[in-house]
C-alpha cells in the first residue's frame, strides 16, 4: 500500500491531534529549558494546518506537504515554524508530483526533511535538538520494507532519540544559554518530533 494525498492529509491531522493533546507537556518541557512557547506555538500552527486542509485537500502528497509547510512557517512564532516548515517544504520538493508515495518516496521525504532541519538549524546529533529524534528515525526508516513498517520503525527510533536528549547539555537553540543546567530535561523539539512521527505511524497511513 502507498500513501495518497488523502492519507498524507490524514496523517497530518493525526499529528495535529497529538500536538493538541500534548500541548501542556511540550509547554512544560520548554518552560524548563527554553522560552516556554513550543507547545503553544506548535498547537497554533497545526490548528491552522487543519483549518487549511478543511478548505479542501490538495491533489498530490507534495501539495499537501507544501500547504503544511507554508502554514507552519506563517503561523508558528518560534523556532519550530522555520524548522518544521523547512522540513515539510523539503519533503514536498523531493516527492515531486507523485500521486502516491511508496516506501522509497517516504524514506526520501524523511531524509529531505532531516536535511532541511539540519541546514536551517545548523544542529548535529547530540546538540539536544529535533535532530536527535529525526536523525535516528531516518536511519531506522531505511531498513524497513513497507510504508507501515518504516513509519513504525521511525517512530520508535524517534521516541528513543528524544529520550536520549535528557542528559545532554544543549548546544543549539534557546536552551544552549542555560549551559549545564539544560541537562536533566528532554528537549521539547525532539519530543514533538517523536510525537509527530508517532502519530504518522499510528495513523491511517498504511
Amino acid at each position: 500500500m502507498a500513501c495518497t494525498a488523502e492519507s498524507v492529509a490524514d496523517a497530518v491531522r493525526a499529528a495535529a491531534a497529538v500536538v493538541a493533546s500534548h500541548r501542556d507537556e511540550l509547554v512544560a518541557l520548554d518552560r524548563a529549558i527554553g522560552d516556554g512557547d513550543h507547545g503553544e506555538n506548535l498547537n497554533r500552527g497545526f490548528t491552522a494546518v487543519v483549518a487549511a486542509l478543511d478548505e479542501g485537500t490538495p491533489d498530490t502528497p507534495a501539495a499537501v506537504l507544501k500547504l503544511v509547510a507554508s502554514t507552519l512557517i506563517s503561523k508558528v512564532g518560534g523556532a519550530a515554524g522555520p524548522l518544521y516548515g523547512t522540513a515539510f517544504l523539503r519533503a514536498s520538493a523531493v516527492v515531486k508530483d507523485a500521486a502516491e508515495l511508496g516506501p522509497a518516496e517516504v524514506v526520501a521525504a524523511l531524509e529531505a526533511a532531516l536535511g532541511g532541519v539540519v541546514a536551517r538549524g545548523k544542529a548535529e546529533v547530540g546538540d539536544k535538538t529535533m535532530v536527535d529524534a529525526l536523525s535516528p528515525a531516518v536511519e531506522a526508516a531505511r531498513s524497513a520494507d513497507s510504508v507501515s513498517e518504516l513509519l513504525t520503525a521511525a517512530a520508535e527510533a524517534a521516541r528513543a532519540g528524544a529520550e536520549s536528549t535528557e542528559p545532554l547539555v544543549a548546544r543549539k537553540g534557546r536552551a544552549s544559554y542555560l549551559g549545564e543546567r539544560s541537562a536533566g530535561h528532554v528537549d521539547p523539539g525532539a519530543r514533538s518530533t517523536a510525537l509527530i512521527l508517532g502519530s504518522f505511524a499510528a495513523g491511517p497511513v498504511r
Binding site: P82, G121, K172
Partner: peptide, 9 residues
Amino acid sequence: GSARMVAEL
C-alpha cells in the same frame, strides 16, 4: 536564533 531562521526563509 529563530529570528535568523525566519529571516532566512
